[in-house]
Protein backbone atom coordinates (compact mmCIF):
# COMPACT_ATOMS: atom_id res chain seq x y z
CA UNK A 1 0.00 0.00 0.00
CA UNK A 2 0.96 3.61 -0.37
CA UNK A 3 -0.33 6.99 0.76
CA UNK A 4 -0.39 9.62 -1.95
CA UNK A 5 -1.33 13.26 -2.54
CA UNK A 6 -0.78 15.39 -5.62
CA UNK A 7 -0.76 19.04 -6.57
CA UNK A 8 0.41 21.33 -9.33
CA UNK A 9 2.76 24.29 -9.37
CA UNK A 10 3.73 26.81 -12.02
CA UNK A 11 7.21 26.10 -13.39
CA UNK A 12 8.39 29.60 -12.40
CA UNK A 13 7.98 28.68 -8.70
CA UNK A 14 9.64 25.26 -8.89
CA UNK A 15 13.04 26.64 -7.90
CA UNK A 16 11.50 28.13 -4.75
CA UNK A 17 9.83 24.80 -3.99
CA UNK A 18 13.18 23.08 -4.36
CA UNK A 19 14.78 25.50 -1.88
CA UNK A 20 11.94 24.89 0.56
CA UNK A 21 12.15 21.11 0.19
CA UNK A 22 15.91 21.17 0.58
CA UNK A 23 15.50 23.10 3.84
CA UNK A 24 12.74 20.86 5.13
CA UNK A 25 14.28 17.52 4.21
CA UNK A 26 17.96 18.21 4.82
CA UNK A 27 18.91 16.02 1.85
CA UNK A 28 19.88 16.78 -1.71
CA UNK A 29 17.52 16.31 -4.59
CA UNK A 30 17.94 13.48 -7.02
CA UNK A 31 17.36 13.89 -10.72
CA UNK A 32 14.31 12.16 -12.10
CA UNK A 33 13.87 10.86 -15.62
CA UNK A 34 11.28 8.15 -16.02
CA UNK A 35 9.80 6.78 -19.19
CA UNK A 36 6.43 5.42 -18.13
CA UNK A 37 4.67 2.92 -20.36
CA UNK A 38 1.11 2.09 -19.40
CA UNK A 39 -0.21 -1.22 -20.73
CA UNK A 40 -3.76 -2.53 -20.84
CA UNK A 41 -4.87 -6.13 -21.18
CA UNK A 42 -6.08 -7.02 -24.68
CA UNK A 43 -9.85 -7.26 -25.23
CA UNK A 44 -10.16 -10.98 -24.48
CA UNK A 45 -7.60 -11.29 -21.69
CA UNK A 46 -8.77 -11.48 -18.08
CA UNK A 47 -12.39 -11.49 -16.90
CA UNK A 48 -11.94 -7.78 -16.17
CA UNK A 49 -9.56 -5.39 -17.92
CA UNK A 50 -6.24 -4.82 -16.14
CA UNK A 51 -3.54 -2.20 -16.30
CA UNK A 52 0.14 -2.34 -15.51
CA UNK A 53 2.83 0.34 -15.71
CA UNK A 54 6.40 -0.23 -16.77
CA UNK A 55 8.78 2.45 -15.53
CA UNK A 56 12.15 2.85 -17.16
CA UNK A 57 14.60 4.92 -15.13
CA UNK A 58 16.57 6.68 -17.87
CA UNK A 59 18.74 8.59 -15.37
CA UNK A 60 20.84 5.48 -14.79
CA UNK A 61 23.85 4.75 -17.00
CA UNK A 62 22.18 1.41 -17.71
CA UNK A 63 18.40 2.08 -17.63
CA UNK A 64 16.53 0.01 -15.05
CA UNK A 65 12.95 -1.23 -15.28
CA UNK A 66 10.23 -1.48 -12.67
CA UNK A 67 6.80 -3.07 -13.01
CA UNK A 68 4.17 -1.17 -11.03
CA UNK A 69 0.59 -2.10 -10.28
CA UNK A 70 -1.64 0.53 -8.74
CA UNK A 71 -4.79 -0.98 -7.28
CA UNK A 72 -8.00 0.43 -5.95
CA UNK A 73 -8.17 3.13 -3.30
CA UNK A 74 -9.19 2.27 0.24
CA UNK A 75 -12.92 2.87 0.61
CA UNK A 76 -15.35 3.52 3.43
CA UNK A 77 -16.35 6.40 5.66
CA UNK A 78 -12.89 6.59 7.27
CA UNK A 79 -11.16 6.88 3.90
CA UNK A 80 -13.55 9.67 2.81
CA UNK A 81 -12.62 11.79 5.79
CA UNK A 82 -8.87 11.75 5.38
CA UNK A 83 -7.18 14.09 2.92
CA UNK A 84 -4.68 11.50 1.71
CA UNK A 85 -5.41 8.69 -0.73
CA UNK A 86 -4.49 5.24 0.55
CA UNK A 87 -4.26 2.67 -2.22
CA UNK A 88 -2.76 -0.69 -2.98
CA UNK A 89 0.51 -0.53 -4.88
CA UNK A 90 2.99 -3.28 -5.74
CA UNK A 91 6.33 -2.77 -7.46
CA UNK A 92 8.91 -5.18 -8.78
CA UNK A 93 12.22 -4.54 -10.47
CA UNK A 94 12.54 -6.42 -13.74
CA UNK A 95 15.03 -7.10 -16.49
CA UNK A 96 14.99 -4.92 -19.59
CA UNK A 97 12.90 -7.28 -21.72
CA UNK A 98 9.82 -6.73 -19.55
CA UNK A 99 7.94 -4.80 -22.26
CA UNK A 100 8.48 -7.69 -24.70
CA UNK A 101 7.15 -10.14 -22.11
CA UNK A 102 3.96 -8.18 -21.49
CA UNK A 103 3.35 -7.75 -25.22
CA UNK A 104 3.78 -11.51 -25.65
CA UNK A 105 1.29 -12.11 -22.83
CA UNK A 106 -1.35 -10.09 -24.68
CA UNK A 107 -0.99 -6.61 -23.18
CA UNK A 108 -1.25 -3.54 -25.44
CA UNK A 109 0.24 -0.07 -25.20
CA UNK A 110 -2.32 2.32 -23.71
CA UNK A 111 -0.16 5.45 -23.40
CA UNK A 112 3.37 6.48 -22.56
CA UNK A 113 4.78 9.49 -20.74
CA UNK A 114 8.14 10.95 -19.88
CA UNK A 115 8.49 12.45 -16.41
CA UNK A 116 11.44 14.76 -15.94
CA UNK A 117 12.29 16.59 -12.75
CA UNK A 118 13.65 15.76 -9.33
CA UNK A 119 12.81 13.85 -6.17
CA UNK A 120 13.56 14.12 -2.48
CA UNK A 121 13.65 10.97 -0.34
CA UNK A 122 13.67 11.52 3.41
CA UNK A 123 12.22 10.34 6.69
CA UNK A 124 9.76 12.53 8.53
CA UNK A 125 7.44 10.39 10.64
CA UNK A 126 7.49 7.95 7.71
CA UNK A 127 9.73 7.44 4.66
CA UNK A 128 8.40 10.12 2.30
CA UNK A 129 9.17 10.76 -1.36
CA UNK A 130 8.40 14.10 -3.00
CA UNK A 131 8.48 14.10 -6.78
CA UNK A 132 8.39 17.32 -8.81
CA UNK A 133 8.17 16.68 -12.52
CA UNK A 134 7.01 17.95 -15.84
CA UNK A 135 4.90 15.39 -17.63
CA UNK A 136 5.69 14.99 -21.30
CA UNK A 137 4.08 13.08 -24.12
CA UNK A 138 5.83 11.48 -27.05
CA UNK A 139 4.86 12.50 -30.56
CA UNK A 140 6.35 9.30 -31.95
CA UNK A 141 6.42 5.85 -30.33
CA UNK A 142 9.10 5.69 -27.57
CA UNK A 143 10.75 8.89 -28.89
CA UNK A 144 11.70 10.22 -25.46
CA UNK A 145 14.12 12.78 -26.91
CA UNK A 146 11.29 14.44 -28.83
CA UNK A 147 8.85 14.63 -25.92
CA UNK A 148 6.72 17.74 -25.40
CA UNK A 149 5.04 18.90 -22.16
CA UNK A 150 1.42 17.88 -21.66
CA UNK A 151 0.76 21.04 -19.65
CA UNK A 152 3.40 23.67 -20.54
CA UNK A 153 4.34 25.89 -17.61
CA UNK A 154 2.85 23.55 -15.02
CA UNK A 155 4.61 20.82 -13.06
CA UNK A 156 3.17 17.94 -11.07
CA UNK A 157 4.09 17.49 -7.42
CA UNK A 158 3.46 14.11 -5.81
CA UNK A 159 4.05 13.11 -2.21
CA UNK A 160 4.04 9.37 -1.54
CA UNK A 161 4.88 7.12 1.39
CA UNK A 162 4.74 3.33 1.68
CA UNK A 163 2.22 2.02 4.19
CA UNK A 164 0.71 -1.20 5.47
CA UNK A 165 -2.79 -1.98 6.71
CA UNK A 166 -1.38 -1.72 10.25
CA UNK A 167 0.37 1.63 10.06
CA UNK A 168 -1.43 3.67 7.40
CA UNK A 169 -3.03 5.98 9.99
CA UNK A 170 0.38 7.13 11.18
CA UNK A 171 1.66 7.44 7.61
CA UNK A 172 -1.39 9.50 6.59
CA UNK A 173 -0.73 11.79 9.56
CA UNK A 174 2.95 12.15 8.60
CA UNK A 175 2.10 12.98 4.97
CA UNK A 176 -0.67 15.43 5.96
CA UNK A 177 1.54 17.29 8.39
CA UNK A 178 4.36 17.50 5.85
CA UNK A 179 1.97 18.90 3.22
CA UNK A 180 1.12 21.81 5.52
CA UNK A 181 4.68 23.09 5.18
CA UNK A 182 4.22 23.29 1.42
CA UNK A 183 0.80 24.97 1.61
CA UNK A 184 1.98 28.53 0.79
CA UNK A 185 3.38 27.26 -2.53
CA UNK A 186 0.93 24.59 -3.50
CA UNK A 187 -2.09 22.67 -2.36
CA UNK A 188 -1.88 18.90 -2.22
CA UNK A 189 -4.95 16.70 -2.39
CA UNK A 190 -6.02 13.20 -3.39
CA UNK A 191 -5.14 12.37 -7.03
CA UNK A 192 -7.96 13.34 -9.35
CA UNK A 193 -9.19 16.05 -6.99
CA UNK A 194 -6.76 18.80 -7.99
CA UNK A 195 -7.57 22.24 -6.62
CA UNK A 196 -5.28 24.15 -9.00
CA UNK A 197 -2.49 26.58 -8.17
CA UNK A 198 -2.58 28.62 -4.96
CA UNK A 199 -2.80 32.44 -4.96
CA UNK A 200 -0.06 32.80 -2.33
CA UNK A 201 2.55 31.03 -4.48
CA UNK A 202 4.10 34.18 -5.96
CA UNK A 203 4.64 35.88 -2.59
CA UNK A 204 5.86 32.68 -0.91
CA UNK A 205 8.27 32.01 -3.76
CA UNK A 206 9.61 35.56 -3.68
CA UNK A 207 10.25 35.25 0.04
CA UNK A 208 12.02 31.90 -0.35
CA UNK A 209 14.16 33.15 -3.23
CA UNK A 210 15.23 36.26 -1.34
CA UNK A 211 16.55 34.47 1.76
CA UNK A 212 17.39 31.02 0.46
CA UNK A 213 14.73 29.24 2.48
CA UNK A 214 15.81 30.59 5.86
CA UNK A 215 12.42 32.00 6.71
CA UNK A 216 9.92 29.76 8.44
CA UNK A 217 6.75 29.98 6.45
Amino acid sequence: MECVVQGIIETQYVEALEILLQGLCGVHRQRLGVHEICLKSGPNLGFVASEVRLLCDIEQAEPTWTVKHVGGAMRGAGAEQISVLVRSMVESKASKNVLRLFYALGYKLDYELLRVGFTFHFHRGAPITVTVSSVNKMLKLHATDEAVPVTPGIQLVEVTAPATSENYNEVVAAVSSFCEYLAPLLHLSKPGASTGVVPTAAAAAASLMSDGGGTTL
Binding site: S41, S50, V90, S92, N97, A104, L105
Partner: peptide, 27 residues
Protein backbone atom coordinates in the same frame (compact mmCIF):
# COMPACT_ATOMS: atom_id res chain seq x y z
CA UNK B 1 11.74 -15.83 -13.30
CA UNK B 2 9.24 -15.89 -16.13
CA UNK B 3 9.94 -17.88 -19.26
CA UNK B 4 8.15 -17.95 -22.59
CA UNK B 5 9.93 -20.67 -24.52
CA UNK B 6 8.09 -19.99 -27.76
CA UNK B 7 9.06 -16.32 -27.68
CA UNK B 8 12.53 -17.05 -26.29
CA UNK B 9 12.03 -14.67 -23.38
CA UNK B 10 13.41 -15.08 -19.87
CA UNK B 11 12.60 -12.30 -17.43
CA UNK B 12 14.21 -11.76 -14.05
CA UNK B 13 12.09 -9.85 -11.53
CA UNK B 14 11.65 -9.40 -7.78
CA UNK B 15 9.50 -12.01 -6.02
CA UNK B 16 6.77 -9.36 -5.73
CA UNK B 17 6.06 -9.81 -9.47
CA UNK B 18 3.98 -12.84 -8.41
CA UNK B 19 1.72 -10.55 -6.40
CA UNK B 20 1.40 -8.23 -9.40
CA UNK B 21 0.36 -11.17 -11.60
CA UNK B 22 -2.25 -12.13 -9.00
CA UNK B 23 -3.63 -8.60 -8.96
CA UNK B 24 -3.76 -8.37 -12.75
CA UNK B 25 -5.98 -11.47 -12.90
CA UNK B 26 -5.07 -12.10 -16.51
CA UNK B 27 -3.09 -15.31 -15.95
Amino acid sequence: YFILRGHKIVLEADSSIQLIMEKLQSY
